[in-house]
């Protein structure tokens, strides 16, 4: 009886949550399918009177939207992959060892999240400019990677801590080196945490606007947030293009989420086997 109640409470909660979360998405989708004149029509239409794909067509005719999506995917995935690669090592070390400077490093990571960035941006720009790193997607990969390192290290360290060190101790007794133990035994158990951290880094990069505006000049290297932001003009927000762009920009992230989710589930089963 109690169980049934719990299940139906779950269903109700999930349904309510879905409605609240999905309504804005629904609204953006139907806006993207409305002709310009109907977007702000009054009374409000909850279903377009006439369906049109003009807004999408406009995106690809007026701008290199395909290129922007590609650039964003490239930068976001590359930077997130670099971050994970680097942070696995630092997170692991910080979780497993106590050593001189440990506290300082952890503190240094936490501190990055609070630093005032106002003046720093100007300095960073001058640095990158003098190194001729501007107007290059690699510069974004670099900046995004550095930007997500502290968070990813802190997060991954948390996940490492939850895995009993007896796990790799056992593997090491079996003849593995610490590194092998890390990659063969610990990482598979860690996949949910890695996937979650990856998602996080990816999304941060995917949405980043200020650095992308600052460091990229050419059309060919523009990323999505910059392109979307240009629909906000002096006197108008082009909601037709904006909503179509939003829909297109959400699709890849949902796919990345779905893939990462699989890892979370896989990690679970593997963790269960090992545990």
């Amino acid at each position: 009886m109690q169980k049934k109640l719990l299940v139906s409470a779950k269903v109700v909660y999930l349904a309510l949550h879905a409605v609240v979360m999905l309504f804005p998405l629904y609204w953006i989708i139907i806006t993207s399918l409305k002709p310009q004149k109907q977007i702000f029509s009054s009374p409000i239409h909850y279903w377009p009177e006439t369906l049109t794909f003009d807004n999408y067509k406009k995106l690809f005719e007026f701008s290199n939207f395909g290129v922007y999506i590609f650039n964003s995917l490239l930068v976001s995935i590359a930077a997130a992959a670099c971050v994970i690669a680097i942070s696995i090592l630092s997170g692991y070390v910080l979780a497993r060892f106590k050593f001189k400077g440990h506290k300082h490093i952890m503190f240094g990571f936490f501190l990055t999240q609070m630093l005032p960035g106002i003046g720093a941006l100007i300095v960073l720009y001058k640095m990158m400019s003098s190194m001729h790193l501007t107007n290059h997607l690699a510069s974004l990969v670099l900046i995004y990677t550095v930007g997500s390192i502290p968070f990813s290290t802190i997060m991954l360290r948390g996940f490492f801590q939850r895995i009993p060190s007896s796990l790799e101790a056992a593997a090491m007794i079996d003849g593995c080196s610490r590194i092998t133990a890390l990659f063969r035994v610990i990482i598979p158990v860690m996949l949910p945490g890695i996937a979650a951290t990856f998602i996080f880094a990816f999304v941060n990069n995917w949405n980043e606007l200020i650095m992308a505006v600052m460091f990229i000049d050419s059309e060919a290297s523009k990323t999505l947030p910059v392109a979307m932001n240009s629909f906000v003009m002096k006197f108008d927000i082009d909601w037709g293009a904006m909503s179509a762009g939003t829909v297109l920009s959400v699709i890849p992230t949902i796919i990345v989420f779905a893939i990462a989710q699989r890892f979370i589930v896989e990690g679970l089963t593997q963790g269960a086997e090992k545990g």
């Binding site: 630092s90 990571f109 900046i143």
Partner: peptide
């Protein structure tokens, strides 16, 4: 293991800040 992290964060975060 910590070297890449420290170098990157010091150069591109702390120095400008």
């Amino acid at each position: 293991c910590l070297l890449p992290v420290i170098v990157l964060v010091l150069t591109f975060t702390y120095y400008p800040v």
